[in-house]
Computed example of a mutant assay.
Amino acid sequence: MRILMVALAATLLAGCAGSVMDDSRSKSPTKVMNSDKPEKVVAQCVQFAWQDEAVFGVDAGAYLQPGKKGGSTVYTRSAEVFVDLSRDASGTQLNFYSQHDDFVTKRRLAALATCL
């Protein structure tokens, strides 16, 4: 029963996050970056960097899922900050989206930059 409740909660959160992401994707990304590293390597690095409790405290959740149009997406709770990663000719393109321009968002962007 407990597992069922956790699964249901995760499904509901994913649905909410998906609509927030779709709305953000209808606008220009906050920042576009490129890396010469493979997409999977960069995605795992970003997820790990965003899970650093020493930097982000109790809000250190980061989730990795397949991207909407291929590639990968790494996102935080409620999708306040997320990055879409896709392969391109030179390696990986990263489209970074954020709902707010605050200190935490800047820290997430700086942590992401360490993975490029």
Score class of each variant (00 low, 15 high):
Glu39Cys: 15
Tyr63His: 07
Phe56Ala: 02
Gln65Met: 08
Ala111Lys: 07
Asp59Ala: 13
Ile3Asn: 15
Lys69Ser: 14
Gln93Cys: 01
Lys106Val: 02
Arg77Ser: 07
Ala9Cys: 12
Thr105Cys: 07
Pro29Tyr: 10
Ala89Trp: 04
Cys45Met: 07
Ala62Asp: 00
Val55Ile: 15
Ala60Leu: 02
Phe56Tyr: 03
Thr105Gln: 10
Lys27Ile: 02
Val83Met: 03
Asp59Arg: 13
Lys27Cys: 03
Phe48Pro: 00
Ile3Ser: 13
Val6His: 09
Arg108Tyr: 14
Cys16Val: 14
Lys68Arg: 12
Glu39Met: 14
Tyr97Arg: 04
Ser28Val: 09
Lys68Gln: 11
Gln93Met: 08
Ile3Ala: 15
Leu109Ile: 11
Gly71Lys: 06
Arg87Val: 06
Val32Gln: 10
Gln47Tyr: 01
Asp52Trp: 07
Leu112Met: 15
Ala17Lys: 00
Ala43Thr: 03
Leu8Arg: 11
Ser90Lys: 14
Ser86Asn: 11
Gly15Arg: 11
Phe96His: 05
Ala60Glu: 00
Met33Thr: 07
Arg25Lys: 07
Val6Ser: 11
Glu80Gly: 12
Leu85Glu: 05
Met33Ser: 14
Ser72Lys: 09
Asp36Arg: 10
Lys69Trp: 08
Val42Lys: 04
Leu109Met: 14
Gly61Trp: 01
Asp22Asn: 07
Gly70Val: 08
Tyr75Leu: 09
Ser26Met: 11
Trp50Lys: 08
Val58Gln: 05
Val20Arg: 10
Thr30Lys: 06
Tyr63Asn: 06
Asp102Ile: 07
Arg2Ile: 14
Val32Glu: 11
Ser26Leu: 10
Val41Arg: 06
Asp59Cys: 10
Gly15Cys: 14
Gln51Ser: 14
Tyr97Asn: 04
Asp36Val: 11
Leu13Ile: 04
Asn95Leu: 07
Lys27Glu: 12
Phe96Cys: 04
Ala110Trp: 02
Pro66Cys: 05
Asp23Gly: 06
Asn95Ala: 13
Ser90Val: 09
Val81Lys: 01
Cys115Val: 08
Gln93Glu: 09
Val41Asp: 14
Arg108Thr: 03
Ala79Trp: 00
Thr76Phe: 00
Leu85His: 07
Glu80Tyr: 11
Ala49Thr: 07
Lys31Arg: 15
Asp84Asn: 13
Ser78Leu: 14
Asp22Thr: 08
Gly57Ala: 01
Thr92Lys: 04
Gly57Gln: 04
Arg2Ala: 15
Pro29Gln: 09
Ser35Asn: 09
Ala10Trp: 06
Pro29Lys: 08
Thr30Trp: 05
Trp50Leu: 12
Lys40Ile: 09
Gln65Thr: 13
Leu94His: 02
Leu94Glu: 01
Ile3Met: 12
Ala9Asn: 10
Asp36Trp: 03
Gly57Trp: 04
Gln47Lys: 15
Leu13Arg: 01
Gly71Asp: 06
Thr30Leu: 07
Asn34Arg: 14
Val104Pro: 00
Arg77Trp: 04
Phe56Gln: 03
Ser35Leu: 09
Ala60Trp: 00
Gly61Thr: 05
Ala9Val: 15
Asp88Asn: 15
Val81Tyr: 09
Asp88Ser: 05
Gln44Pro: 00
Asp36Cys: 02
Thr92Met: 03
Ala43Glu: 02
Ala62Ser: 12
